[in-house]
Simulated assay, not measured.
Amino acid sequence: MANIASLLKTEITRIARKEVRAELESLKKANSHHRALIAELRREIAALQKQLRQVGRERIAVVNETKALNRKYRFSATRLAAHRAKFGLSAADYGKLAGVSGNTIYLWERGKSRPKPEQVQQLGMLKSLSRKAALAQLEKINA
C-alpha cells in the first residue's frame, strides 16, 4: 500500500501545477498584449521623429529663405556661368528658374548686359538652392 505522505505530496504538486499554469496563461496574455502596445508606440515614436525632422528642415529652409531675401547680392558673370554649369542646366532652363529668357542668361554670362537689382536678388536666391531643389522647382515650372 502506498505511503499516505507520498500520495498527499503528489496531489499537492498536481494541484499547485494546475494553479500555476492558470496564472501563467493570464500573464502570458498580458505580456503579449504589452509587447504589441510597445511595438505600436515605437512605430508612433518613429513617425513623430520623422515629422519632427521634416519640420526642422522646413524651418531651416524658411530661415535660409528669409536670410536670402534680406541679403544683398552682387552679380558676377563668371559665377553665374559656373553655377549654371554646376547644376547642369541649359541657359533656357536656368532662365526659367530666374524668370528670364535663356538668351538673357547667355548675355549676362558673356558680360554683354547686366541684370536689374531685383533680378540679382532672384539669382542670389537661386544660389541658395540645392541642385535637387532647383530641379524640383524647374519641374513645377515645366508642369
Rank of each mutant, 00 (worst) to 15 (best):
Lys9Ile: 11
Arg74Lys: 15
Leu126Asn: 04
Lys116Asn: 10
Lys29Asn: 08
Phe87His: 08
Tyr94Met: 14
Lys132Phe: 12
Glu44Ala: 11
Leu24Ser: 11
Arg42Val: 08
Arg71Gln: 13
Asn103Ala: 12
Arg53Glu: 12
Ala133Glu: 14
Lys18His: 11
Glu65Lys: 13
Arg110Val: 03
Gln122Glu: 02
Leu135Pro: 02
Ile45Tyr: 13
Asn31Tyr: 10
Leu123Asn: 04
Leu89Gln: 02
Gln119Leu: 03
Gly99Cys: 06
Arg21Cys: 07
Arg59Gly: 11
Ala81Cys: 13
Lys29Leu: 05
Val20Thr: 10
Tyr106Ser: 15
Gln137Thr: 09
Ser101Ile: 12
Leu126Glu: 00
Leu126Pro: 00
Ala30Trp: 01
Leu97Ala: 01
Leu107Cys: 10
Glu40Arg: 13
Asn64Cys: 07
Leu37Ile: 10
Thr13Asn: 14
Pro115Glu: 09
Gln122Trp: 07
Glu23Pro: 04
Arg79Thr: 01
Arg14Val: 06
Gly124Val: 03
Val62His: 06
Glu109Asp: 03
Arg53Cys: 13
Gly95Gln: 11
Glu139Cys: 05
Lys29His: 05
Ile12Gly: 00
Arg35Met: 15
Gln54Gly: 05
Ser32Thr: 11
Arg43Asn: 14
Asn70Lys: 12
Gly111Met: 00
Arg21Asn: 11
Arg84Gly: 04
Ser26Cys: 02
Arg42Cys: 05
Gly88Trp: 13
Ser113Cys: 12
Leu138Ile: 02
Ala133Ile: 08
Ala136Asn: 11
Arg35Phe: 14
Arg84Ile: 01
Ala61Lys: 10
Leu69Met: 07
Glu118Asp: 09
Glu25Cys: 08
Thr13Arg: 15
Leu80Met: 12
Ala136Cys: 11
Glu44Arg: 14
Lys72Ser: 11
